[in-house]
C-alpha cells in the first residue's frame, strides 16, 4: 500500500499523511451510512419506514442534512463548566477511538502499523476513551453528566476483563498478537472440507468465546442493552447532556467508530478478517477490504438489531452479569481452549 502511494505521490510526509487518513475516510463515510442504517433498522423493526424524504431514495441523505445542520449550530459551553476540559474531551475521545484503528488490518495490503502487540494495543488505547468520558462528565458540571460518566467508567473497566480474557483465548490458538498474522493464519485451509478456516470453526469453545466476546464488546461500545451511560429515561443524555452542535457530533462519531472498531476486531479474531469466505475465489487486496468491511458491518447490524430487541439492564444487573457470569465463564473457556490446543 505504501509503495503504491509512493508511486504517484511526490513527498514522503504526504505519503504518510494519505496512508494514515484512509481509516478516517472509511470511518466518516461509515458513520454517515451507519446512522442512516440505525434509523432504518429501528423503523423496520417497529413496522415503520424510518426517514424517507431527504435525498429521494429511502431518505439516504438524511444524515448528511443532519450533519449540515449540526455544523451550523452554536457552540455552547455552560457558564459553570470547566471550559478547557469541556472543549478538549470530545477530541480526546475521538483520538482514542481513531488511534485504535492503527492495528486493524483492513485488507491484506493495508494495516496502519505491523506492531507485534496489536490486540493488546487496541485494548490499551481504548481505555483512554473512558478517561475522556469522565473528563466530559466532570467538566460539564451537571449531575446527569457526572453520573453517566461514572457509570461508563465502571462499566468499561469491568467489561474490559471478559473482553481481554476472550481475546487471550484466541491468542492461545494463534500464538501471535498481531492481527495481520492472526488473519493470515485463518486463510486458505478449510475445515471439514467445506467450512473456511476461520477461528470460530476451530473448536466448539471458540463459538462460546465469540459469544462472550460479543456481549462484552456490546457493553464496551455502550450499546443497548448496556447503554446505561446515556440512558435517556434516567440520565437525560448521560455524559453528552451539556454538549451540542459539532462537539456532540464528535461524541456520536466516536460512538459509531467504536462500534466499527470492535466489530472489525471481532471479524479479524473470529471470522477470518479479510479472507474470502469462498477460499481463493474473490480473494485479493481489494476484495479483502470488501470482505473485512462487510463482516464488520454485519456485526454492526447485529448490534443495531439487538438494540430494538432487548430492554436495558439495571446497574446491578449489569455488574452481576459481568462479574458473576461473564468473567468466570470466560476463564473456564480459556482453560478449555488451552486444553483443546494441548490435546489436538
Amino acid at each position: 500500500m505504501q509503495q503504491f502511494l509512493e508511486s504517484f505521490l511526490p513527498a514522503g510526509p504526504l505519503v504518510v499523511f494519505v496512508f494514515s487518513i484512509i481509516p478516517l475516510m472509511i470511518i466518516l463515510v461509515y458513520a454517515l451510512f451507519a446512522i442512516w442504517l440505525e434509523r432504518k433498522v429501528a423503523g423496520h423493526m417497529q413496522d415503520r419506514l424510518g426517514p424517507m424524504r431527504t435525498g429521494g431514495w429511502h431518505g439516504w441523505a438524511q444524515t448528511i442534512a443532519d450533519l449540515v445542520k449540526m455544523i451550523q449550530k452554536e457552540d455552547i459551553v455552560p457558564a459553570k463548566a470547566d471550559r478547557f476540559l469541556f472543549k478538549m474531551a470530545p477530541f480526546i475521545a475521538f483520538a482514542a477511538s481513531y488511534a485504535a484503528f492503527v492495528a486493524i488490518p483492513f485488507s491484506s495490503g493495508y494495516i496502519g502499523s505491523m506492531i507485534d502487540v496489536g490486540v493488546f494495543y487496541i485494548v490499551a488505547i481504548t481505555s483512554l476513551l473512558s478517561v475522556s468520558i469522565i473528563m466530559a462528565g466532570w467538566a460539564s458540571n451537571n449531575k446527569w453528566s457526572l453520573l453517566g460518566a461514572m457509570r461508563t467508567a465502571a462499566q468499561t473497566v469491568s467489561y474490559e476483563i471478559p473482553t481481554v480474557v476472550t481475546i487471550l483465548s484466541v491468542i492461545i490458538v494463534t500464538g501471535t498478537l498481531n492481527l495481520m498474522e492472526i488473519t493470515e493464519l485463518q486463510s486458505g485451509n478449510t475445515f471439514l472440507g467445506f467450512l473456511p478456516g476461520w477461528l470460530i470453526f476451530h473448536s466448539p469453545f471458540m463459538v462460546i468465546a465469540f459469544v462472550l466476546f460479543f456481549i462484552a464488546t456490546l457493553a464496551e461500545a455502550h450499546r443497548v442493552p448496556f447503554d446505561l451511560p446515556e440512558s435517556e429515561s434516567e440520565l437525560v443524555g448521560g455524559y453528552q447532556t451539556e454538549y451540542s452542535g459539532m462537539r456532540w457530533g464528535l461524541f456520536m462519531l466516536t460512538e459509531y467508530a467504536d462500534m466499527l472498531l470492535l466489530s472489525l476486531l471481532g471479524a479479524a479474531l473470529f471470522f477470518g478478517g479479510w479472507n474470502s469466505p469462498f477460499g481463493s475465489y474473490l480473494d485479493g487486496p481489494l476484495w479483502g477490504a470488501f470482505w473485512m468491511l462487510l463482516k464488520g458491518m454485519i456485526l454492526v447490524f447485529v448490534m443495531m438489531w439487538l438494540r430494538w430487541t432487548l430492554p436495558r439492564l439495571r446497574v446491578d444487573q449489569l455488574m452481576n452479569l459481568c462479574w458473576k457470569y461473564l468473567i468466570p465463564l470466560s476463564f473456564v473457556n480459556l482453560v478449555l481452549i488451552a486444553l483443546w490446543e494441548m490435546i489436538f
Binding site: A124, V131, I134, L146, M150
Partner: peptide, 25 residues
C-alpha cells in the same frame, strides 16, 4: 519498547488514573 509503552497506557492511564478519579469523586 512497544510492549512497555502499551502496558504503561493500560495500567497507568486505563487503570490507575481511573481509580484516582474515582477516588477523588
Amino acid at each position: 519498547a512497544g510492549f512497555v509503552a502499551v502496558t504503561q497506557l493500560l495500567v497507568y492511564v486505563g487503570g490507575i488514573l481511573v481509580l484516582i478519579l474515582f477516588g477523588v469523586m
